[in-house]
């Protein structure tokens, strides 16, 4: 007996509630944008400049005491968070101390780091500092721009590639799904206030890649079925294609999630935010390839008859030319 995630043969109608699902996606995108502007992202030092010092001690972390010890140094905004991880031993207490960027272009001075370390050592002489990272405001500003360019470049490249391989309607659907995924990920990062840094950008681009992977597989089947069933209604073609690829979609999502969840649980706290973004992205990406990309494709219509110039496409919306 084989394990099956979905029944052998499915004939589900994925567009029965397409108004509702598209509306839901639109609402989520809107909420994410609101969250981004209202709450904002918890930027790491890569994007904001500043210094993080990781501390490790046998004594339990006392955030208040740490704060009091550092306060006299007058370094501006200092945030201290305790880090928890199942990999830590019983005597391993870890905290992250984050200090805002100081004046000037440079990263933090040797003296300042030394002063902070000395202040913490008065609390606990045994405390160690496994990592110290400092980014000057000049670099962090540039990193923000590079990150934005990277995401835009990725989306742009995809737009062009899909357009070349399929039709522009596919391209618009795929890119809408990508933007949906990226925006929703940014939204969840601002709502949960998970640190947003360079690694998160890497995760975002991976989500772009993954979500696309899914979308392209469905679209590939749509393309094939469009040629095979020349008379079939576009909606039916889409439904058939999604149903046919459903088993594969679920298989791949589940194997990817198995791997990512293992990494999330056991991979250590350093990359947890990164892995979280990817898990979220796999779930959202799988959803969006059906309910955003394909649903939009249905609304945009597709050129069916290759012998005629454009027109006479699947639905009434096809007249909307972009």
């Amino acid at each position: 007996m084989r394990l099956r995630l979905v029944p052998q043969e499915t004939t589900w109608d994925f567009f029965k509630r397409s108004k509702f699902t598209l509306g839901f996606s639109g609402l989520m995108v809107l909420l994410s944008v609101v969250a981004f502007f209202a709450i904002g992202l918890n930027f790491g030092i890569d994007f904001r400049g500043g210094t993080t010092i990781r501390t490790e001690s046998v004594e339990p972390v006392d955030v208040g005491a740490y704060r009091d010890a550092i306060a006299p140094l007058e370094l501006g905004d200092v945030s201290i968070t305790e880090v928890f991880d199942p990999n830590f031993g019983p005597d391993q207490n870890v905290a992250m101390v984050r200090i805002q960027a100081q004046q000037g272009d440079e990263s933090i001075s040797v003296e300042t780091i030394q002063a902070v370390e000395d202040a913490l050592k008065t609390l606990d002489p045994e405390i160690t500092f496994p990592s110290v990272e400092s980014v000057g405001p000049k670099v962090s500003g540039e990193l923000v721009m590079t990150a934005i360019y990277a995401v835009l470049a990725a989306i742009g490249t995809v737009l062009i590639y899909i357009w070349l391989r399929f039709e522009w309607q596919f391209s618009v659907g795929a890119v809408a799904a990508l933007i949906h995924d990226v925006v929703l990920t940014i939204g969840v990062f601002s709502v949960l206030q998970i640190q947003f840094d360079l690694a998160t950008i890497a995760a975002l681009l991976t989500i772009v890649g993954y979500s696309l992977n899914d979308t392209v597989v469905v679209f590939d089947r749509v393309r094939e079925n469009l040629r095979r069933y020349k008379k079939m209604d576009l909606r039916e073609v889409l439904n058939l294609s999604i149903n046919e690829t459903l088993s594969r979609t679920m298989m791949t999502s589940v194997t990817t999630l198995i791997a990512l969840i293992a990494l999330f649980a056991l991979g250590g706290d350093v990359i947890r935010g990164f892995v979280f973004a990817m898990i979220w992205g796999v779930v959202v990406g799988t959803y969006s390839s059906v309910f955003v990309a394909s649903a939009l494709l249905l609304r945009l219509g597709v050129k069916r008859d290759w012998s005629k110039p454009d027109g006479g496409a699947g639905t009434q919306f096809a007249d909307v030319d972009a």
């Binding site: 990277a150 990725a154 993954y210 696309l212 992977n213």
Partner: peptide, 16 residues
């Protein structure tokens, strides 16, 4: 599917 993912990996490599 893989070319598109590869393209994003390429962009990451250039920009990252």
């Amino acid at each position: 599917a893989n070319i598109t993912t590869f393209l994003t990996a390429g962009i990451l490599f250039i920009m990252g």
